[in-house]
Simulated assay, not measured.
Amino acid sequence: MLRILLPIVLFFTSLILSAQQSIMGQVVDSSNQPLEAVYVYWDSNYAGAVTNSDGKFQLEIPAEADSLTFDQYEFELKKVSVKDFHANPIVQLKDYIIELNEALVLSKKSDEILKDVLKASKMKLNKSLLVHTFYREFISVNNEFTTYSDGLLDYFIKRNSGKSDLFVKQSRHFQLKTKEESEELISLSISSPFDIRDALGNAFDFESIEKLLKEKNHYSFQISEFSDSEGKTIRKITISPKEGVKELLMEGVILYDEETNLILDYNLKVSPETIPYSKLHNFVIAKIKINDLNVHYNFRLDEGKYRLVFRRVHQDFYIKSGKKIDDSFQFTSDFVVLDYKENEQPPVEFKKYRNRNLFEAGTNYTEEYWKSINAITPTQKEQDLIDTLQKN
Protein backbone atom coordinates (compact mmCIF):
# COMPACT_ATOMS: atom_id res chain seq x y z
CA MET A 1 0.00 0.00 0.00
CA LEU A 2 2.84 2.38 0.86
CA ARG A 3 4.38 1.83 -2.58
CA ILE A 4 1.07 2.80 -4.19
CA LEU A 5 0.44 5.82 -1.99
CA LEU A 6 3.94 7.29 -2.18
CA PRO A 7 3.82 8.17 -5.93
CA ILE A 8 0.36 9.67 -5.41
CA VAL A 9 1.58 11.78 -2.49
CA LEU A 10 4.61 12.93 -4.46
CA PHE A 11 2.41 13.79 -7.44
CA PHE A 12 0.05 15.99 -5.42
CA THR A 13 2.98 17.54 -3.57
CA SER A 14 4.54 18.56 -6.89
CA LEU A 15 1.22 20.05 -7.97
CA ILE A 16 1.05 22.13 -4.80
CA LEU A 17 4.65 23.31 -5.16
CA SER A 18 4.17 24.22 -8.83
CA ALA A 19 0.88 26.07 -8.22
CA GLN A 20 0.94 29.77 -9.01
CA GLN A 21 -0.87 32.71 -7.52
CA SER A 22 -1.46 36.05 -9.18
CA ILE A 23 -0.40 39.17 -7.29
CA MET A 24 -1.77 42.59 -8.26
CA GLY A 25 -1.06 45.87 -6.50
CA GLN A 26 0.25 49.41 -6.59
CA VAL A 27 3.42 51.12 -5.35
CA VAL A 28 3.35 54.75 -4.15
CA ASP A 29 5.78 57.22 -2.58
CA SER A 30 5.48 58.96 0.81
CA SER A 31 3.01 61.43 -0.75
CA ASN A 32 0.91 58.55 -2.12
CA GLN A 33 1.89 59.38 -5.69
CA PRO A 34 2.28 56.39 -8.06
CA LEU A 35 5.86 55.17 -8.52
CA GLU A 36 6.85 54.06 -12.00
CA ALA A 37 9.62 51.54 -12.79
CA VAL A 38 9.74 49.86 -9.37
CA TYR A 39 11.09 46.31 -9.70
CA VAL A 40 8.92 43.78 -7.85
CA TYR A 41 10.08 40.20 -7.28
CA TRP A 42 9.67 37.28 -4.90
CA ASP A 43 13.21 35.91 -5.38
CA SER A 44 16.22 37.73 -6.82
CA ASN A 45 17.02 34.66 -8.96
CA TYR A 46 13.74 34.91 -10.84
CA ALA A 47 12.33 37.55 -13.17
CA GLY A 48 9.98 40.05 -11.58
CA ALA A 49 7.57 42.72 -12.76
CA VAL A 50 7.99 46.45 -13.36
CA THR A 51 5.37 48.96 -12.25
CA ASN A 52 3.72 51.05 -14.96
CA SER A 53 3.13 54.82 -14.98
CA ASP A 54 0.19 54.29 -12.58
CA GLY A 55 2.49 52.49 -10.15
CA LYS A 56 0.58 49.25 -10.75
CA PHE A 57 1.94 45.76 -11.35
CA GLN A 58 0.85 42.15 -11.75
CA LEU A 59 3.08 39.20 -10.98
CA GLU A 60 2.72 35.43 -11.01
CA ILE A 61 4.47 33.85 -8.01
CA PRO A 62 4.65 30.30 -6.62
CA ALA A 63 2.03 29.40 -4.04
CA GLU A 64 4.78 28.80 -1.48
CA ALA A 65 6.35 32.27 -1.90
CA ASP A 66 6.18 34.03 1.45
CA SER A 67 7.32 37.59 0.64
CA LEU A 68 7.67 40.23 -2.09
CA THR A 69 10.54 42.67 -2.55
CA PHE A 70 10.00 46.22 -3.87
CA ASP A 71 13.18 47.72 -5.28
CA GLN A 72 13.79 51.18 -6.71
CA TYR A 73 17.25 52.62 -6.20
CA GLU A 74 16.16 56.05 -4.92
CA PHE A 75 13.80 54.50 -2.37
CA GLU A 76 14.39 52.19 0.56
CA LEU A 77 14.21 48.49 -0.30
CA LYS A 78 11.05 47.03 1.17
CA LYS A 79 9.99 43.45 1.80
CA VAL A 80 6.34 42.65 2.45
CA SER A 81 4.90 39.27 3.40
CA VAL A 82 2.43 37.88 0.89
CA LYS A 83 -0.13 37.64 3.69
CA ASP A 84 0.23 41.33 4.56
CA PHE A 85 0.15 42.27 0.88
CA HIS A 86 -3.18 40.50 0.36
CA ALA A 87 -4.54 42.54 3.28
CA ASN A 88 -3.24 45.81 1.78
CA PRO A 89 -2.09 45.69 -1.88
CA ILE A 90 -0.84 49.31 -1.84
CA VAL A 91 2.84 49.49 -0.88
CA GLN A 92 4.43 52.78 0.16
CA LEU A 93 8.18 53.30 -0.29
CA LYS A 94 10.29 55.79 1.64
CA ASP A 95 12.89 57.79 -0.27
CA TYR A 96 16.49 58.10 0.88
CA ILE A 97 17.94 61.31 2.30
CA ILE A 98 20.27 62.75 -0.36
CA GLU A 99 23.43 64.51 0.78
CA LEU A 100 24.17 67.92 -0.69
CA ASN A 101 26.61 67.99 -3.59
CA GLU A 102 28.81 70.50 -1.71
CA ALA A 103 29.48 67.88 0.97
CA LEU A 104 31.27 65.60 -1.50
CA VAL A 105 35.01 65.84 -2.04
CA LEU A 106 35.66 64.72 -5.61
CA SER A 107 39.08 64.21 -7.17
CA LYS A 108 37.78 64.64 -10.73
CA LYS A 109 35.26 66.73 -12.60
CA SER A 110 31.75 65.29 -12.72
CA ASP A 111 31.84 64.55 -16.45
CA GLU A 112 35.21 62.78 -16.05
CA ILE A 113 33.73 60.63 -13.28
CA LEU A 114 30.82 59.77 -15.57
CA LYS A 115 33.29 58.77 -18.28
CA ASP A 116 35.04 56.38 -15.85
CA VAL A 117 31.70 54.96 -14.72
CA LEU A 118 30.67 54.40 -18.33
CA LYS A 119 33.92 52.57 -19.10
CA ALA A 120 33.61 50.29 -16.07
CA SER A 121 29.98 49.46 -16.89
CA LYS A 122 30.78 48.61 -20.51
CA MET A 123 33.60 46.29 -19.50
CA LYS A 124 31.41 44.46 -16.99
CA LEU A 125 28.56 43.98 -19.49
CA ASN A 126 30.74 43.17 -22.49
CA LYS A 127 30.43 39.40 -22.72
CA SER A 128 28.71 36.76 -24.83
CA LEU A 129 25.11 36.55 -23.61
CA LEU A 130 21.84 35.07 -24.78
CA VAL A 131 19.15 37.25 -23.22
CA HIS A 132 15.50 36.13 -23.05
CA THR A 133 13.00 39.00 -22.87
CA PHE A 134 9.32 39.81 -22.86
CA TYR A 135 8.88 42.75 -25.22
CA ARG A 136 5.94 44.95 -26.20
CA GLU A 137 5.39 48.05 -28.30
CA PHE A 138 2.60 50.54 -28.85
CA ILE A 139 2.37 52.79 -31.89
CA SER A 140 0.10 55.83 -31.93
CA VAL A 141 -0.68 58.51 -34.49
CA ASN A 142 -1.53 61.91 -33.03
CA ASN A 143 -1.82 60.20 -29.62
CA GLU A 144 -4.42 57.73 -30.85
CA PHE A 145 -3.39 54.06 -30.59
CA THR A 146 -3.05 52.31 -33.95
CA THR A 147 -0.90 49.23 -33.32
CA TYR A 148 0.06 46.91 -30.48
CA SER A 149 2.55 44.02 -30.52
CA ASP A 150 4.25 41.86 -27.94
CA GLY A 151 6.41 38.77 -27.93
CA LEU A 152 9.13 36.58 -26.50
CA LEU A 153 12.40 37.82 -27.95
CA ASP A 154 15.95 36.54 -27.65
CA TYR A 155 18.90 38.89 -28.05
CA PHE A 156 22.34 37.41 -28.67
CA ILE A 157 24.97 39.85 -27.42
CA LYS A 158 28.31 39.56 -29.20
CA ARG A 159 31.34 39.42 -26.94
CA ASN A 160 33.66 41.98 -28.55
CA SER A 161 31.34 44.55 -30.11
CA GLY A 162 28.47 44.45 -27.62
CA LYS A 163 26.11 44.53 -30.62
CA SER A 164 23.13 42.21 -30.71
CA ASP A 165 21.30 39.86 -33.06
CA LEU A 166 17.55 39.50 -32.57
CA PHE A 167 15.47 36.31 -32.70
CA VAL A 168 11.67 36.47 -32.39
CA LYS A 169 10.47 33.23 -30.77
CA GLN A 170 6.76 34.06 -30.43
CA SER A 171 4.72 37.15 -31.15
CA ARG A 172 1.26 38.60 -31.63
CA HIS A 173 0.10 41.75 -33.38
CA PHE A 174 -3.07 43.85 -33.44
CA GLN A 175 -3.91 46.91 -35.50
CA LEU A 176 -6.69 49.49 -35.75
CA LYS A 177 -5.64 50.89 -39.10
CA THR A 178 -6.92 49.61 -42.44
CA LYS A 179 -4.65 47.44 -44.58
CA GLU A 180 -3.78 50.37 -46.86
CA GLU A 181 -2.98 52.66 -43.92
CA SER A 182 -0.94 49.91 -42.23
CA GLU A 183 1.14 49.35 -45.37
CA GLU A 184 1.84 53.08 -45.42
CA LEU A 185 2.88 52.89 -41.77
CA ILE A 186 5.16 49.89 -42.40
CA SER A 187 6.77 51.68 -45.33
CA LEU A 188 7.29 54.74 -43.18
CA SER A 189 8.78 52.72 -40.31
CA ILE A 190 11.64 51.62 -42.57
CA SER A 191 12.96 55.16 -42.49
CA SER A 192 11.99 56.03 -38.90
CA PRO A 193 14.52 56.14 -36.03
CA PHE A 194 12.62 53.38 -34.18
CA ASP A 195 14.48 50.04 -34.48
CA ILE A 196 13.72 46.98 -32.35
CA ARG A 197 16.98 45.31 -33.41
CA ASP A 198 18.96 47.90 -31.46
CA ALA A 199 16.74 47.76 -28.39
CA LEU A 200 19.12 45.73 -26.26
CA GLY A 201 22.36 46.60 -28.02
CA ASN A 202 21.87 50.25 -27.05
CA ALA A 203 21.73 49.19 -23.42
CA PHE A 204 25.09 47.47 -23.67
CA ASP A 205 26.86 50.37 -25.35
CA PHE A 206 25.06 53.08 -23.29
CA GLU A 207 24.40 55.09 -26.45
CA SER A 208 22.37 57.83 -24.74
CA ILE A 209 25.09 58.50 -22.16
CA GLU A 210 27.82 58.44 -24.81
CA LYS A 211 25.96 61.16 -26.68
CA LEU A 212 25.74 63.28 -23.52
CA LEU A 213 29.49 63.05 -23.00
CA LYS A 214 30.18 64.04 -26.60
CA GLU A 215 28.12 67.17 -25.98
CA LYS A 216 29.36 67.71 -22.40
CA ASN A 217 29.97 71.43 -22.96
CA HIS A 218 26.19 71.83 -23.29
CA TYR A 219 25.42 70.22 -19.92
CA SER A 220 25.82 70.68 -16.18
CA PHE A 221 26.65 67.59 -14.12
CA GLN A 222 25.97 67.56 -10.36
CA ILE A 223 26.78 64.64 -8.05
CA SER A 224 25.11 63.75 -4.74
CA GLU A 225 25.06 60.48 -2.81
CA PHE A 226 23.14 58.35 -0.32
CA SER A 227 23.42 54.97 1.41
CA ASP A 228 20.99 52.25 0.38
CA SER A 229 19.29 49.67 2.61
CA GLU A 230 22.41 47.49 2.60
CA GLY A 231 24.74 50.37 3.48
CA LYS A 232 26.17 50.70 -0.02
CA THR A 233 26.95 54.19 -1.28
CA ILE A 234 24.91 55.14 -4.35
CA ARG A 235 25.88 58.25 -6.28
CA LYS A 236 23.40 60.28 -8.26
CA ILE A 237 24.47 62.35 -11.27
CA THR A 238 21.87 64.96 -12.16
CA ILE A 239 22.18 66.22 -15.72
CA SER A 240 20.64 69.44 -17.01
CA PRO A 241 21.20 71.73 -20.03
CA LYS A 242 23.32 74.81 -19.52
CA GLU A 243 21.52 78.11 -19.86
CA GLY A 244 21.80 79.84 -23.20
CA VAL A 245 22.39 76.70 -25.33
CA LYS A 246 19.79 76.82 -28.10
CA GLU A 247 19.66 73.14 -29.07
CA LEU A 248 17.45 70.15 -28.34
CA LEU A 249 19.02 68.66 -25.19
CA MET A 250 18.35 65.98 -22.57
CA GLU A 251 17.98 66.06 -18.80
CA GLY A 252 17.75 63.36 -16.18
CA VAL A 253 19.49 61.20 -13.61
CA ILE A 254 22.18 58.50 -13.64
CA LEU A 255 22.67 56.32 -10.54
CA TYR A 256 25.83 54.30 -10.00
CA ASP A 257 27.42 52.17 -7.30
CA GLU A 258 30.31 54.14 -5.79
CA GLU A 259 32.39 51.05 -4.95
CA THR A 260 32.19 49.24 -8.30
CA ASN A 261 31.62 52.28 -10.54
CA LEU A 262 28.75 50.42 -12.23
CA ILE A 263 25.67 52.18 -13.58
CA LEU A 264 22.54 50.95 -11.81
CA ASP A 265 19.87 53.06 -13.44
CA TYR A 266 19.55 55.93 -15.86
CA ASN A 267 16.48 57.87 -16.85
CA LEU A 268 16.92 60.57 -19.49
CA LYS A 269 14.37 62.66 -21.35
CA VAL A 270 14.20 65.65 -23.62
CA SER A 271 14.36 68.85 -21.57
CA PRO A 272 10.99 70.63 -22.10
CA GLU A 273 12.72 74.04 -22.28
CA THR A 274 14.72 72.93 -25.32
CA ILE A 275 11.88 71.42 -27.40
CA PRO A 276 11.40 74.68 -29.37
CA TYR A 277 14.94 74.14 -30.75
CA SER A 278 14.09 70.77 -32.30
CA LYS A 279 14.86 70.75 -36.04
CA LEU A 280 13.41 68.91 -39.03
CA HIS A 281 15.78 66.28 -40.46
CA ASN A 282 15.64 64.64 -43.89
CA PHE A 283 15.55 60.83 -44.02
CA VAL A 284 15.09 58.47 -46.97
CA ILE A 285 11.36 58.94 -47.58
CA ALA A 286 10.36 61.36 -44.86
CA LYS A 287 11.21 64.47 -42.88
CA ILE A 288 11.33 63.87 -39.13
CA LYS A 289 11.48 66.11 -36.07
CA ILE A 290 11.74 65.00 -32.43
CA ASN A 291 8.83 66.12 -30.24
CA ASP A 292 9.79 64.08 -27.18
CA LEU A 293 12.13 61.28 -26.10
CA ASN A 294 12.50 59.35 -22.84
CA VAL A 295 14.88 56.42 -22.24
CA HIS A 296 15.04 54.44 -19.00
CA TYR A 297 17.38 51.50 -18.34
CA ASN A 298 17.73 49.58 -15.09
CA PHE A 299 20.52 47.20 -14.05
CA ARG A 300 21.21 44.92 -11.06
CA LEU A 301 24.41 43.74 -9.45
CA ASP A 302 23.63 40.41 -7.75
CA GLU A 303 26.38 38.21 -6.33
CA GLY A 304 28.94 39.74 -8.65
CA LYS A 305 26.78 39.39 -11.75
CA TYR A 306 25.90 42.62 -13.52
CA ARG A 307 22.72 42.30 -15.53
CA LEU A 308 20.14 44.36 -17.35
CA VAL A 309 16.67 44.20 -15.77
CA PHE A 310 14.42 46.33 -17.94
CA ARG A 311 14.32 48.99 -20.63
CA ARG A 312 11.60 51.55 -21.33
CA VAL A 313 11.63 53.98 -24.26
CA HIS A 314 9.06 56.51 -25.44
CA GLN A 315 9.62 58.44 -28.66
CA ASP A 316 7.42 61.13 -30.22
CA PHE A 317 8.21 62.30 -33.74
CA TYR A 318 6.58 64.69 -36.18
CA ILE A 319 6.78 63.01 -39.59
CA LYS A 320 6.13 64.54 -43.00
CA SER A 321 6.04 62.16 -45.98
CA GLY A 322 4.43 63.14 -49.28
CA LYS A 323 0.81 64.25 -49.25
CA LYS A 324 -0.57 61.44 -47.06
CA ILE A 325 1.44 61.77 -43.86
CA ASP A 326 1.71 64.98 -41.88
CA ASP A 327 1.34 63.70 -38.32
CA SER A 328 2.96 63.03 -34.97
CA PHE A 329 3.86 59.41 -34.30
CA GLN A 330 4.37 57.97 -30.81
CA PHE A 331 6.45 54.82 -30.34
CA THR A 332 6.51 53.24 -26.87
CA SER A 333 8.50 50.06 -26.30
CA ASP A 334 9.40 48.13 -23.16
CA PHE A 335 11.08 44.90 -22.28
CA VAL A 336 11.90 43.00 -19.12
CA VAL A 337 14.71 40.45 -19.04
CA LEU A 338 13.26 37.06 -18.12
CA ASP A 339 16.54 35.13 -18.10
CA TYR A 340 20.02 35.16 -19.56
CA LYS A 341 22.80 32.67 -20.22
CA GLU A 342 26.49 33.35 -20.55
CA ASN A 343 28.77 32.03 -23.31
CA GLU A 344 25.83 30.72 -25.34
CA GLN A 345 25.49 30.50 -29.09
CA PRO A 346 22.57 32.10 -30.96
CA PRO A 347 19.50 29.85 -31.31
CA VAL A 348 19.76 27.81 -34.52
CA GLU A 349 16.03 27.05 -34.71
CA PHE A 350 15.16 30.71 -35.40
CA LYS A 351 16.23 33.03 -38.18
CA LYS A 352 17.77 36.38 -37.35
CA TYR A 353 15.03 39.01 -37.32
CA ARG A 354 15.74 41.74 -39.85
CA ASN A 355 12.75 44.11 -39.54
CA ARG A 356 12.70 47.35 -37.58
CA ASN A 357 9.43 46.83 -35.71
CA LEU A 358 7.87 43.82 -34.02
CA PHE A 359 4.48 44.33 -35.69
CA GLU A 360 6.08 43.20 -38.96
CA ALA A 361 6.53 39.74 -37.40
CA GLY A 362 2.75 39.37 -37.24
CA THR A 363 1.00 36.85 -34.98
CA ASN A 364 2.87 33.58 -34.52
CA TYR A 365 2.78 31.79 -31.17
CA THR A 366 2.56 28.25 -29.78
CA GLU A 367 1.33 29.16 -26.29
CA GLU A 368 -0.57 32.03 -24.67
CA TYR A 369 2.62 33.39 -23.12
CA TRP A 370 1.06 36.75 -22.17
CA LYS A 371 -1.16 35.03 -19.58
CA SER A 372 1.75 33.66 -17.56
CA ILE A 373 4.25 36.47 -18.11
CA ASN A 374 3.12 39.76 -16.58
CA ALA A 375 6.52 41.42 -16.52
CA ILE A 376 5.09 44.74 -17.76
CA THR A 377 1.62 45.55 -16.51
CA PRO A 378 -0.37 47.65 -19.01
CA THR A 379 -1.94 50.90 -17.82
CA GLN A 380 -5.73 51.00 -17.89
CA LYS A 381 -5.65 52.90 -21.20
CA GLU A 382 -3.27 50.33 -22.68
CA GLN A 383 -5.32 47.40 -21.38
CA ASP A 384 -8.50 48.91 -22.83
CA LEU A 385 -6.73 49.07 -26.19
CA ILE A 386 -5.56 45.46 -25.99
CA ASP A 387 -9.05 44.27 -24.99
CA THR A 388 -10.58 46.19 -27.91
CA LEU A 389 -8.07 44.80 -30.38
CA GLN A 390 -8.58 41.22 -29.16
CA LYS A 391 -12.32 41.50 -29.79
CA ASN A 392 -11.86 42.69 -33.37
Rank of each mutant, 00 (worst) to 15 (best):
M1Y: 04
I8N: 05
V9W: 03
F11G: 10
S14D: 07
G25W: 01
S30P: 00
S31H: 07
N32T: 11
Q33I: 09
E36C: 06
Y39H: 12
Y46L: 12
G48A: 04
D54Y: 07
G55D: 02
K56S: 12
L59Q: 07
P62G: 14
E64R: 15
S67Y: 12
Q72G: 00
Y73G: 06
E74Y: 05
F75C: 02
E76H: 12
A87R: 09
K94D: 15
N101M: 05
K109M: 06
S110T: 14
S110Q: 15
L114G: 05
L114C: 06
K115T: 13
D116T: 04
L130F: 02
V131Y: 01
Y135T: 14
R136D: 10
N143V: 01
F145H: 11
L153C: 10
F156K: 02
F156L: 07
G162F: 11
D165A: 07
L166C: 11
F167P: 14
V168G: 00
S171G: 04
R172T: 13
R172E: 11
F174K: 14
E181H: 10
I186K: 08
S187F: 05
I190P: 00
P193W: 02
D195F: 03
S208P: 00
I209K: 10
K214E: 13
K216V: 06
Q222V: 12
E225C: 06
G231P: 08
T233K: 13
R235W: 07
K236E: 07
K236P: 00
I237G: 01
T238A: 07
I239C: 10
K242E: 11
G244P: 03
E247G: 03
G252Y: 14
G252L: 08
V253R: 02
I254E: 05
E258C: 05
T260Q: 14
P276V: 13
Y277V: 01
L280F: 07
H281C: 06
F283P: 11
V284A: 12
I285V: 09
I288Y: 07
N291V: 11
L293A: 10
L293G: 02
N298W: 00
L301D: 08
G304C: 00
V309G: 05
Q315Y: 11
Q315F: 09
Q315H: 09
Y318F: 12
K323N: 14
S333I: 03
F335M: 08
V337P: 00
Y340M: 13
Y340A: 02
K341H: 06
E344T: 13
K352Y: 01
Y353E: 14
R354I: 12
N355D: 13
N357F: 02
L358S: 00
L358R: 12
G362V: 06
T363P: 09
N364Q: 12
K371E: 15
A375R: 03
I376K: 15
P378G: 04
P378K: 06
T379I: 11
D387N: 10
T388Y: 11
